[in-house]
Design a protein around this nucleic acid. Structure first.
Lengths: 338, 338
DNA sequence: CAACTTGGGTTAAACGTTTAACCCATTAAA
DNA sequence: TTTAATGGGTTAAACGTTTAACCCAAGTTG
């Protein structure tokens, strides 16, 4: 590949001068500039980002760690980060680590090796201590979807408890009393917190103790939702509304419900979570709680950038987000017949 | 950040020795090795990938260019590439360029600056010549979803014409005669080629000339599908089966059809294209043509890697893929009443 | 006219690695 | 005992940039 030296030789100038025209620097006359540009084109020169990063100690790349690309939720996350990358003319380095704390850590490690100035990590599995250390070591390191009190100004997260509360309040306000929850079976915080908020609100509402919510756990996927709904039906217990862990589970549940003669929302209401694009495509269109992940990701990236630059972020936006109820067609009031 | 020099100083050895333990090289005794590893941990050393790339002239990163991350189709593409990246312990650098030939080219340029050994580009807008040039300049450069005869051994593409034929054959074989096509309105090859194949087969089948397929174009999205279906209905012309440009359009069309009293598939059959995850989630589950994009992306990445390494790919797999008919519930035979 | 400034450069060090070319003890083989 | 091989290192150049520190000629000022 052509280097700056080749150009310099041909143009009969020093590499410093060539470097200056590449970077639109000062100290080079218009004549020389034109000549060099000309030669650069002829020789098909492309600057070497590695050499640059090495000497300037900044890589112009922003790294993202997510479990996987195909999940639309994480794709939204990446898109949010990509937007700020574009705005700040940075590159996007994407690292995935889905399986274990080990692979998540490796994914982060790779980004550090690349000397990303900015890193947005979505990690559910790595231990708090490790993450705290990373936050402290690397200025531009920010956590998304996770709340660690010790480094909370480097976290952007969703208030899952409040999410659970909002869900419960909505269902209760429509008269539903026989509630069911289809939760994720993963041992991470989110399902627990949502359930906690949900229960809190249910108890709060003075519903009869005998009517404690039915709870069933499965993999947070379409298939998991189907299985969960089957379990719910098989239990023989009555329910008029379901709060699902995410939209995929909600949609899976709906299809099993309908296959079993329940109409949604006439017989059973189903409330989703996340508001991925899917939920608009499903029929009935899904009522759900919007997880503003893309916006959060943008925020995270901006925060990380500010941290990396050492400038505190001016916008005083809260780092904790509250999901928003999106009313579509899968949740309806309980017929007042009872 | 700690460098190899710091380690060397503390350990009282040369940087060469440290470098060797970092890379599991030979020529270092077990005692020294252990000591150095120990020190590396204490000082929290992380190798600098940029410096490495500079001197070895290989970056261990594989670049992908796609229009956007959020589209599930492109997310699948990226996932395919990511799989090979993981298998070959490479990094994934993702560059998006959606709007114009200009931005697509910029996205590629960025990857070249990073000196990616391997680049998989999805480009619909850049002119043939430019791409041919890139293919020739960069050994590990491969095109996906595009077929340029001059560099066809660096292309992986779908046979769109055959896709159109398969669609037509399937619909015709079920007795449908009054056909409609909902196509993408973008001025790229794919919609034309599919339509071409579709028409070919229709003419071939000796259907009456008066029954030429109804054609309507819109943006290839859910919304576009809705609008297209409306246009179809408004035209007043009869149709019993629709071939949609992609699954999103198909689903949009279905919702409008049902809203207008048509039942799918009893009154109208709808055939999608792509088989994104969506199509399993929709109801009725979508009959569609599978675009094996993830597999193609894997293939492209392997091909690119082989090219970069100068080893011709051993597997003699064809570089052109044919979509596969996935039968679900949105297409049914025409009731033989007529 | 001496003393500055300014425009347009050049020189050379530095960034953090890798690696070819050496070097020096030991030990083994002839 | 000489020669050869082997293990365990060191030295120093190179990768492609950027940038601080110089340098010089041609104006400008006072």
């Amino acid at each position: 590949m052509t280097t700056i030296k080749d150009i310099a030789k041909v143009a009969g100038v020093s590499t410093a001068t060539v470097s200056r025209v590449v970077n639109n620097g000062p100290k080079v006359g218009p004549k020389t500039r034109d000549k060099i540009i000309q030669i650069m084109h002829e020789l098909g020169y492309t600057p070497n980002a590695n050499a640059r990063a090495l000497v300037t100690r900044k890589s112009k790349t922003i790294g993202v760690v997510i479990p996987e690309i195909s999940d639309p939720f994480f794709a939204s996350l990446a898109t949010g980060v990509e937007q700020v990358a574009r705005e700040t003319s940075n590159q996007l380095l994407l690292s995935t680590g889905k399986i274990s704390a080990q692979t998540e850590l490796e994914a982060i490690q790779l980004l550090i090796e690349q000397r990303c100035d900015i890193i947005i990590a979505h990690s559910k599995l790595i231990a708090d201590d490790t993450l705290v250390e990373l936050c402290q070591q690397i200025p531009g390191f920010v956590l998304i979807d996770r709340h660690i009190e010790a480094v909370k100004d480097k976290c952007i997260w969703l208030d899952n408890i409040e999410g659970g509360r909002i869900a419960a309040r909505h269902l209760l306000s429509l008269g539903h009393q026989q509630l069911a929850v289809i939760n994720s079976h993963y041992e991470i915080e989110d399902p627990y917190l949502r359930l906690q908020g949900f229960r809190e609100e249910v108890e709060h509402s003075g519903i009869e103790a005998s009517n404690e919510p039915l709870i069933v756990k499965h993999e947070p996927s379409l298939r998991g939702g189907e299985l969960a709904a089957q379990a719910l039906i098989a239990s023989g217990k009555p329910f008029s509304a379901i709060f699902a862990y995410n939209d995929a589970m909600a949609i899976g549940a709906i299809s099993v419900l309908e296959a079993n003669g329940y109409r949604v929302p006439q017989d059973v209401s189903v409330l989703g979570f996340d508001d991925v694009m899917l939920s608009q495509y499903s029929r009935p269109k899904l009522t759900t709680l919007r997880y503003p992940i893309q916006q959060m990701a943008k925020h995270a990236a901006q925060l990380a950038r500010a941290m990396a630059l050492g400038q505190p972020l001016s916008t005083a936006a809260s780092q904790s987000y509250v999901p928003e109820l999106i009313q579509r067609d899968s949740v309806k009031p309980l017929p007042s017949s009872s």
